[in-house]
Write a protein that binds this DNA or RNA. Structure first.
Lengths: 172, 172
DNA sequence: TGAAAACATTTTAGGCTTAAAACAATTTGG
DNA sequence: CCAAATTGTTTTAAGCCTAAAATGTTTTCA
């Protein structure tokens, strides 16, 4: 059951390889399905966070990053970890400092750098939310067996590596 | 190699099941990896669309929906398919009509309904972009074997079903 | 029939997000 | 040393996005 554009058909004809448009429909479908899953789960988590804790998903995500870094992080670190733009972080942090969840100070060794940390309030609230959040995620993935989970982890690791290489090829 | 919270340990003790906090770390890690993959690929596609065609990803996505529906779609259809809010679609459509890519008219049989279609220009531009877009996706997933792709499709289908059930449980 | 429910869309208010330019501080290399 | 490059952050302008309320239309059903 060879695919229509199976490369074996073109091994002896370099021009064919160039001229025949490849069939990438499967990869496209895979991408759309990946996107659907993420959008679905993300929307569900967003709604539950809002309903239960009146907090937005980006705020929660930022607090999650900081909870793992007791000594704080720089805005750049946060930006890279969350894979969002610098300016985005500036605004998010502004609002979370304003609401008393974050503490922000200029680094003593490099005056360009801003270090942010969770306040006591911020940490307490985050821990409370995170505990419940974890059960939501477990429920959303409930139909996957432990083996499914392992296998998905493996394939997504491969996907991530592939995408990173592709991105690096374009932007070296 | 049973997991710490293997349920078999609690079959004869109902209270244990309630009192022992379950370990959902694996599901949480899986969710974060899924999100990372999507964010990575989405960001890459967004950047390429902007650089090559000066178009935004949401605009592209909306045109992709319409390209599959020669007779047009209602705004609600689009909203459901794209999994975004109604108000969001209203704004997107406004801008795409403005730029001449979309045609919008009120349904003749139901004056509540707005039907939108790609214009000739919109379709031509979309087809041009879509052809290149497909090669980007193929490149981003290049390191996955056909078997990997199939397996991922299967597991993500299962994930989608699981998440949909979970969402339905909360919001019946 | 005609009020109530359901539906499709728009509006509103606020927040999120990006890319690019601007600004400030530090590091580097001649 | 010091000009140039680099780095970290903020600002800007524009667009994206959501939830909820408002508006207009159609359907339901008592």
């Amino acid at each position: 059951m060879p695919a229509v554009n199976d490369c074996s058909k073109m091994l002896d004809s370099e021009t064919k390889v160039v001229e025949t448009p490849e069939d990438h429909a499967d990869e496209l479908r895979l991408w759309l399905r990946l996107l659907t899953c993420t959008t679905l789960i993300e929307g569900e988590v967003r709604g539950r966070l809002r309903q239960r804790f009146d907090v937005t998903l980006p705020r929660f995500d930022l607090m999650a990053q900081l909870d793992k870094a007791p000594d704080g992080m720089t805005l750049s670190d946060v930006s890279k970890r969350m894979m969002v733009s610098n300016g985005n972080v500036t605004g998010l942090v502004e609002r979370l400092v304003e609401s008393g969840h974050l503490d922000r100070r200029t680094s003593e060794t490099d005056r360009r750098v801003q270090v942010i940390r969770l306040t006591k309030l911020g940490r307490a609230e985050f821990r409370r939310m995170a505990a419940e959040h974890e059960t939501w995620i477990a429920d959303l993935f409930a139909e996957l067996s432990p083996k499914d989970v392992r296998e998905l982890m493996r394939l997504l690791a491969k996907t991530k590596a592939s995408a990173q290489k592709s991105a690096a090829r374009r932007r070296p």
